[in-house]
């Protein structure tokens, strides 16, 4: 989960209550109900997945687990959703949301043993903040979002995490999966849709810099 998702307790609704949402057509799809048995769990976990598609083409996946534990694909969240602000939120809103989330998810305030997970969370929040707090980058992001480009933070290949795995080997695992992702990207250099938005922006900046 650390690799691409945000794990959070059921009571924490920050990432799930999108205060302002366009009217969604909710299409509950029975095919999205997945049943699987993680090795470390003795009982099955049922992910009830609801796919909602809104006017600007982002896809959100919400998943509920039968023990009340909510799991979300942060990879599917837009930067606005990540910060919990509406798409027309002001710079002040963005700054405020960022600081609030930092107080919640900065690794310094992490409970013992969850530092790595909080680090991943914070890095995501940071990227969302850095993009949206810069008017130029925010405009580009909004444009891409309107075009319906996949806004994945990381469109990395999903894989199930074995919780018994120690932090270090997990890192390698993730990194290797990142490498393969990179490889895939580089073979289709024009297909930037699969890159994380931040990476795409960095590349764009680098390209424009080198073009000068």
């Amino acid at each position: 989960m650390r690799s691409h998702g945000l794990t959070m307790s059921g009571s924490d609704s920050r990432f799930f209550s999108f205060p302002v949402k366009p009217v969604n057509k909710s299409i509950p799809d029975p095919n999205h109900n997945v049943l699987f048995f993680p090795a470390h769990h003795h009982r099955p976990i049922i992910f009830t997945t609801t796919t909602t598609r809104d006017s600007i083409g982002t896809v959100r996946v919400k998943a509920t687990v039968n023990d009340g534990f909510v799991f979300s694909e942060a990879a599917e969240l837009s930067f606005y959703e990540l910060l919990g602000i509406p798409e027309w939120g002001s710079l002040v809103d963005i700054k405020q949301a960022y600081k609030q989330l930092a107080r919640k998810y900065h690794p310094d305030v992490s409970p013992p043993g969850r530092v790595e997970e909080y680090t991943q969370r914070f890095i995501r929040v940071q990227e969302a903040y850095e993009t949206l707090s810069d008017p130029r980058r925010r405009a580009l992001y909004d444009r891409d979002m309107a075009k319906g480009i996949h806004l994945a933070f990381s469109a990395r290949k999903r894989y199930q995490k074995d919780e018994g795995m120690e932090e270090k080997s997990e890192w390698k695992y993730r990194w290797q999966s990142q490498l393969s992702e990179l490889k895939r990207r580089s073979t289709n250099k024009d297909m930037t849709g699969n890159m994380s938005w931040g990476a795409r922006m960095r590349r764009r900046r680098e390209e424009s810099y080198n073009g000068l």
Binding site: W175, Q176, S180, K183
Partner: peptide
């Protein structure tokens, strides 16, 4: 890491 040409794997 070195990316293997034509492959997804390092």
């Amino acid at each position: 890491g070195v990316l293997q040409p034509g492959s997804h794997l390092p």
